[in-house]
């Protein structure tokens, strides 16, 4: 349970980190809090020649509200969000998600950017932030680009990150005063990776709904216009109008053949809807 030997660099700034990453030709791995990479290194599932530790880079520790959105540096930890050390534009939604990620000792080091980069389908942020309509900025020596969370997550542990690119920041839009939020997950043991995730952002006043069905062993199902799950329109009575049969069909179409699995996912999604309506 010890990692294979690796070289270690602690770049002094983001540019230095990007240069090291570019020069490594794919033999290097970025580490921040190491709460996903650490176990994989220890299990020798990953054996990089070089570890580039970005955990000290102050450029990636920002949390500012500007232009109606919260910009979080990639190094902001789950505990930073849980404790409210970062501004909250989601009216408690992100704090509640953060507070239920793994365990406190993990949240004290695990970062939002690291969790997204790892792109584990069972992790919380890829589902929660997709439902909240967040975007992220990726940076390499060549420059920066911005994309939605749903575009970023390509598959299980597969992201849109290209060689030489790292997650720089996450942009979370302000949750409107009329938008309801619901988030539910099923874990066989508290704190472990979820077996099903449901995340909903429903605004009856604006008649809009974003729904995410996550932890399905691949990129989450993100329904940016989810009216179809609620009888075709979003109104104040959306809880009663939630159609489990449609949700089941969506899952079946996404390739989930196991009826029991679909049942769990639908049940968890229903809980998220109920929480939003509560």
């Amino acid at each position: 349970m010890k990692p294979a030997p690796f070289a270690y660099e602690r770049p002094r700034d983001l540019d230095a980190a990007l240069s090291m990453l570019a020069a490594s030709n794919g033999s290097a791995k970025i580490i921040a809090g190491g709460q996903s990479l650490g176990p994989m290194l220890n299990l020798r599932l990953v054996q990089p020649e070089l570890i580039i530790d970005i955990s000290g880079l102050t450029e990636l520790k920002r949390a500012d509200v500007s232009g109606g959105e919260l910009v979080l540096g990639a190094l902001v930890t789950h505990a930073d969000i849980e404790d409210g050390r970062t501004a909250d534009v989601t009216r408690g939604a992100m704090r509640a998600v953060a507070a239920n990620i793994a365990y406190r000792a993990v949240r004290n080091r695990g970062t939002i950017g690291g969790s997204l980069s790892h792109a584990d389908p069972a992790a919380d942020w890829i589902s929660a932030l997709a439902a909240l309509g967040a975007r992220m900025t990726l940076r390499s020596c060549a420059g920066a680009r911005t994309m939605t969370i749903e575009a970023f997550v390509v598959g299980a542990l597969e992201s849109a990150l290209q060689a030489g690119e790292i997650v720089e920041s996450i942009h979370v839009p302000t949750r409107s005063a009329s938008a309801h939020w619901g988030y539910a997950k099923s874990c066989r043991k508290t704190g472990e990776f979820a077996h099903a995730i449901g995340a909903v952002l429903i605004d009856p006043a604006a008649a809009t709904a974003r729904v995410v069905i996550g932890a399905i062993d691949t990129a989450p199902i993100v329904l940016t216009d989810a009216a179809g799950l609620f009888g075709g329109r979003i109104a104040a009575d959306y809880k009663e109008r939630f159609d489990a049969g449609i949700a089941d069909a969506v899952l079946a179409k996404a390739g989930i053949d196991d009826v029991v699995q679909r049942h769990i996912h639908v049940g968890v999604l229903k809980r998220a809807v109920q929480e939003a309506a509560a």
């Binding site: 602690r10 002094r12 921040a32 809090g33 190491g34 955990s55 000290g56 880079l57 102050t58 990636l60 520790k61 920002r62 949390a63 540096g73 190094l75 902001v76 930890t77 505990a79 930073d80 849980e82 404790d83 050390r85 970062t86 004290n108 080091r109 695990g110 970062t111």
Partner: peptide, 19 residues
Amino acid sequence: TNGGRTGLGPAGSGRAAAD
């Protein structure tokens, strides 16, 4: 207060001497 932390980022990070 504040969960026992002041700055942002992974616990224990950013403590290396600058240069």
